[in-house]
Design a binder for these strands. Structure first.
Lengths: 136, 136
DNA sequence: CTGTATCCGTTCCGATACTG
DNA sequence: CAGTATCGGAACGGATACAG
């Protein structure tokens, strides 16, 4: 335990160090992973079950073909989704969550719940402070 | 409930829709907010209690003065932290979490716990797939 | 001590065109 | 259907210098 934390209560220490940990490196690794605007939404969408590329493209609103491909490639590389190619004409490719991928859903839910509860208030604040610039 | 979700089980529907919600807009709002590399670390650091600008600069490893200022200004604008200026020489400015800011800690913990559990495996996968650069 | 202003390279990502 | 390739604008963020 680092000296600065000696006087914190156990619960505070647990909070602080679990998040800040190794100088934030572990947390930043996952943030780098999920914070690219699309990853979490793709994972959440795949929580429904196996989906084809085209289905994902339809169900994740606003994602471009390029970003969907890149996102899925990263998720596959990290072992969060599986990619199954069927040698048919026309081609069919199916994506599904691995157990590791599924395990990301509950933390994502916690974040989503927080967002649903607090984002409206945050946006109201922003609107108050920048009356001209709102949601485009 | 949208037509595509009619046949999902209630729990699946709850999962999917709580995350994907309004086309992912609410979730993306908070992701845009916390995914800027520093916000979550600053919030986690402030979980200790009130801190001065210089303390934060020391305790968040690697953050630049500029990014700390910008991050704190955004958090203040969104009502997650308070900023208190004391008219002294030299000046003293203290930052603290608001209740809304504190409420972000538990979801952040859930994410951090996931990262601590799974990031090592993910990095091992990446290392396997990119063994070395420059092998002849 | 607590910032602001400016420069500037890097990364992100949308649009578009093309392919098996 | 399921990608890949390329371009270019925009945003991110580090370094540095300057200021109240």
């Amino acid at each position: 335990m680092c000296p600065r934390h000696r006087e914190l209560s156990p619960v505070d220490y647990e909070h602080t160090c679990r998040i800040r940990g190794d100088g934030g490196r572990t947390l930043r690794t996952i943030l780098d992973q999920i914070c690219n605007k699309w990853t979490l939404l793709v994972v959440a969408t795949l929580d429904q079950g196996t989906l084809r590329f085209g289905d994902l493209h339809q169900q994740v609103p606003g994602i471009s073909q390029r970003m969907l491909t890149l996102t899925l490639r990263n998720l596959e590389r990290d072992g969060l989704v599986t990619r199954t190619v069927y040698a048919e004409v026309p081609p069919r490719v199916e994506y599904a969550l691995t157990p590791v991928g599924k395990s990301l859903i509950p933390p994502a839910l916690a974040l989503a719940a927080w967002a649903i509860e607090h984002v409206p208030g945050i946006e109201a604040r922003r609107a108050d402070q920048h009356p001209s610039r709102g949601t485009p």
